[in-house]
Amino acid sequence: MSRISVRGFAVASATAVTTVGAVVGVASGDPQVSDANLEATAADTTLLADIPAGQQAQVQTASLAEQADVQASAADATAKKSAEESARMQAAKDAKSKKAAADDKAEQERLDKERAEQAKKDAERASRDEVRSSSSSGSFAQQSSYTVADVQSIARQIVPADQFQCFSNIVNHESTWNYQAENPSSGAYGLVQALPASKMSSAGADWRTNPATQIKWGLNYMNDRYDSPCGAWSFWQANNYY
């Protein structure tokens, strides 16, 4: 036997209803019911009667199978949507983790750079302090007078080599390397034009006549106030004083 579809089952049921109506019409003496209709109805009735109960079960089974297919398709769609949502959430989580890692790396690089710069500054300061200490303890034979070449030679022995040009630029503008230069209006005195001049006594009592004492004081002043002679020179260029 071939499998009967749900549609076929519905048609068979409708045929059975029509057959019953025809029989009732004959019984009631309805003249509109013809013999042909009765024959057709009888034929249909025979068709419905010929459907075994097993085939009717097959029809019901087919209907349940179709419902199962629909439910399976819906489940597949739900599962697919759930998988896509999970993938989207995982991608967002991965992106967030990557950004956090990149931020951490950037922060670490910034800290490393700051530490390196600070270490460089500390090394430079230690070098200046060492030069300052050695120059302070070092002795320069006192002379009755000094030429510009003499004063510059002393300065090269006291001022760090990488800072000498900046120191020299300031001295050139302030006194043209004249250790006895004095500003008549302000009283500023010496190579670096200390004001008041007596401040240079912290480097030595001979500050008026000894260029070495003036150079030591000037170097200490520039280091303390501007971190270096080059720092002092940068300020001087912007303000015409330091």
Rank of each mutant, 00 (worst) to 15 (best):
T61A: 15
A75K: 01
E66T: 02
D69I: 01
Q58R: 04
A68Q: 09
S82M: 11
S63I: 08
T78A: 12
Q55I: 06
T46E: 11
A40Y: 13
Q56S: 10
L64Q: 14
D69Y: 12
A79I: 04
A42V: 05
E66S: 10
G54L: 10
D44R: 03
T41Y: 09
A40H: 09
A53M: 08
P52S: 15
K80H: 02
A62R: 00
T61M: 15
L47W: 09
T45F: 06
Q55V: 09
S63W: 08
Q60Y: 03
Q56E: 07
E39T: 03
A49I: 01
T61V: 13
A43D: 08
A62P: 00
K81Y: 15
D50H: 02
V59E: 05
T46S: 11
K81E: 15
Q56K: 07
T78C: 03
Q58D: 15
Q55G: 01
S73W: 05
Q58N: 11
Q71G: 12
A43C: 01
A65N: 05
T45N: 00
S82K: 10
A57L: 12
A75V: 00
A53R: 00
I51C: 04
A65F: 02
D44A: 08
Q67D: 13
S73C: 01
G54S: 15
A72E: 07
A72F: 10
G54P: 14
V59A: 14
A77E: 05
A40M: 05
E66F: 11
Q58E: 15
T46L: 12
K81M: 14
A65G: 07
T61G: 15
Q56P: 02
A62F: 14
V59D: 03
S73N: 05
Q67I: 04
A75P: 00
K81D: 15
L48F: 13
A72M: 10
A74E: 09
S82Y: 02
A79D: 10
Q58F: 07
A83P: 00
A42K: 02
L48C: 07
G54K: 08
A53T: 13
T45C: 04
G54N: 12
K81V: 13
Q60E: 14
T78P: 01
A49R: 06
Q60T: 14
K81R: 11
S73Q: 06
I51D: 01
K81Q: 14
S73L: 01
A68M: 08
Q71R: 13
A74D: 07
Q60W: 01
T78R: 04
A57G: 14
A57D: 15
D44P: 00
E39W: 03
S63G: 13
A57C: 09
